[in-house]
């Protein structure tokens, strides 16, 4: 692999892992506080899968540059993280969480489907391994969007409000990282453009069927994963607090 391609792949894997880790963090804030016991279970399941995916992407990075996944997760500063801003937003209410999860799950499922054919075999295998989990999440959150959209006036209003807030942020999922074109050229990762088109089509149809309106003004659309929301610093202060409390620890 050419060094420039390798660097881009390392950056891409980091972004993939960071998205999963931070989203898992936000979702895990619900555990024990869900609206129904069954949803505590379902969301805990999603969190585990997301942590599994983060571990997998960081693991692929490790094969390339030897970096330790736990070091990446617990000793990197906010400005070195490459998650998108969508996953950093506070968990909000149940509508906010379910909508974010749906928008993300659909993007991820489509991306993984395409990534199964990656020319980089470890990535193709990873995608094949986790696509089934992702389809299961998607089914779950897709159903929630429908239920809340078509439930009561209140639930529709909350979901619509979440959509208005998140729509611009969600577009960042389709912004390539610097150097991603190299990876696309080598067939290592799928091109984001066609995935976005398909995503837009499916999301639009599902949201409209659930009585929701796509916002006319999408609002802020982040264009670089180098910048973050004001929340990331606090997320990491909490998330890394135990690990950094005793950096001398050899094992946890």
């Amino acid at each position: 692999m050419k060094p420039s391609v390798k660097d881009a792949l390392i950056a891409k894997l980091t972004a993939l892992g960071d998205d999963e880790l931070i989203l898992a963090h936000r979702n895990s804030e619900w555990v024990g506080h869900g609206p129904i016991l069954e949803e505590d279970i379902a969301l805990a399941n999603i969190v585990q899968d997301e942590l599994g995916h983060a571990t997998l992407w960081y693991g692929l990075r490790k094969e390339l540059d030897g970096s330790d996944p736990d070091q990446l997760a617990f000793f990197r500063d906010a400005n070195e993280y490459r998650c998108c801003e969508l996953v950093e937003l506070p968990k909000g209410d149940w509508a906010f969480t379910m909508l974010r999860q749906y928008l993300f799950d659909l993007y991820e499922a489509l991306w993984l489907e395409a990534a199964q054919h990656s020319a980089y075999k470890p990535l193709a295998e990873a995608a094949q391994k986790i696509i089934r989990e992702e389809r299961f999440h998607l089914q779950h959150t897709r159903a929630w969007v429908e239920r809340l959209g078509l439930g009561t006036e209140e639930s529709n209003r909350r979901l619509q409000q979440a959509l208005n807030f998140q729509w611009g942020y969600a577009q960042q999922l389709f912004v390539p990282i610097p150097g991603e074109e190299l990876l696309v050229a080598e067939g290592i990762v799928p091109e984001l453009g066609p995935i976005r088109e398909r995503w837009l089509e499916l999301v639009t149809r599902h949201l409209q069927n659930a009585d929701l309106k796509l916002p006319i003004n999408p609002g802020y659309q982040p264009t670089s994963r180098a910048y973050h929301t004001e929340h990331l610093w606090s997320i990491l202060a909490e998330m890394q607090s135990t690990a950094r409390w005793e950096p001398e620890a050899k094992v946890w």
Partner: peptide, 22 residues
């Protein structure tokens, strides 16, 4: 226990704890 999911010191411990609370 759930309150410590967000502060677990490694990815593995975090995963184990989520599974336990689940």
């Amino acid at each position: 226990e759930g309150a410590w999911i967000t502060r677990a010191p490694t990815l593995k411990r975090k995963m184990i704890l989520v599974a336990k609370v689940q």
